[in-house]
Simulated assay, not measured.
Amino acid sequence: MNVSIERMERESNKKSVLHNIDNRIKLIITIGIIIYAVYTQNLFVLLVMEIYLILLILLSKISFSYALKRILLILPFGGAIAIFQPFIKSGAVLYTLPLGITMTYEGTIFGILLLSRLIVCITAIVLLSSVTPMQEIINSARKLGMPREFSMILSLMIRYLFMFYDELLKIRDAQKSRCFDIWSKKTAYLWRLKQIGYTIMMMFLRSYEQGENVYFSMLSRGYSDNSRLYNDNKKLNVKDYTFIAITISLISLLEITRYFSVI
């Protein structure tokens, strides 16, 4: 899958209606959708929320196939928990497998619900990161009340993350120039594994040296523990309020529909 930090930043710097919405609003809406997805137990509500997020992805003009790849790349980390629920949760036996393994009805329903929640949450996070640069997400969280020390650490982490990525690309280009291919079956597995270890070691050494140079450059420009980050006073416009109103109206409508359907 062609999923890289560079590609993520290119997608987040595109121009669309969703890209132009205030970053604080996008962060608040994303957190709200995640909380609501975890709260609800209605599969129909989760389906509607996922369709809404997909429509936002299409409206934002980002590559749908790229967003889908990112969702599928993250999904296995939590999806494995949902897959095992039918076999570990007690309840009425739905199906009996060989070796005495049983699937329960309650476990299957809970696994589907857990997987649906996970898909909605991941889609919301992928959408946010695809229409908002990483640094802007941290800046928006700081404006919303994130502690200064925490936001400073995250800001530096993002900057060093790109530096790590640049160093990795340089090392990989050097290896390609020497005809090294990690997936080549013509070379011994242990030798390839050793080269991967050398690559990781070299990447950290180069990144450490570059990080020291960057840190000393920051000190020479007046950086200290008491340094303050710049905050721009951007006011909300009609697009921001419209996006909030549409999302809140959708969630409210779903809750009202679910309430009356229960009654």
Rank of each mutant, 00 (worst) to 15 (best):
N2P: 08
S4A: 04
R7C: 03
R7S: 13
M8H: 11
S12H: 02
K15D: 15
S16I: 03
K26G: 04
I28N: 03
I34D: 01
I34G: 05
I35E: 04
T40V: 10
L58M: 13
L59G: 11
A67D: 07
K69G: 09
I71R: 03
I74M: 11
L75G: 08
F77R: 09
F77A: 12
A82W: 05
I83W: 13
G91S: 06
V93Q: 11
L97C: 09
G100W: 06
E106R: 01
T108W: 07
T108Q: 02
F110G: 06
I112E: 06
L114Y: 11
L115I: 08
R117C: 03
R117L: 02
V120F: 05
I122W: 03
A124E: 07
A124C: 04
V126F: 01
L128Q: 01
S130Y: 03
T132Y: 03
T132G: 09
P133A: 04
Q135M: 15
E136C: 03
E136Y: 01
K143M: 10
G145P: 05
M146A: 14
P147T: 04
P147R: 07
R148V: 11
E149V: 10
F150C: 12
S155V: 01
L156F: 14
M157S: 15
L161R: 08
F162N: 02
Y165V: 05
E167Y: 05
K170P: 00
D173Q: 11
K176P: 05
S177K: 03
R178S: 06
I200H: 05
M201P: 02
M203N: 13
Q210D: 15
N213T: 12
N213Q: 12
Y215H: 11
M218H: 02
L219Y: 08
Y223K: 02
R228N: 15
Y230S: 14
V238K: 13
S249L: 09
E255N: 10
E255I: 10
T257P: 00
S261F: 13
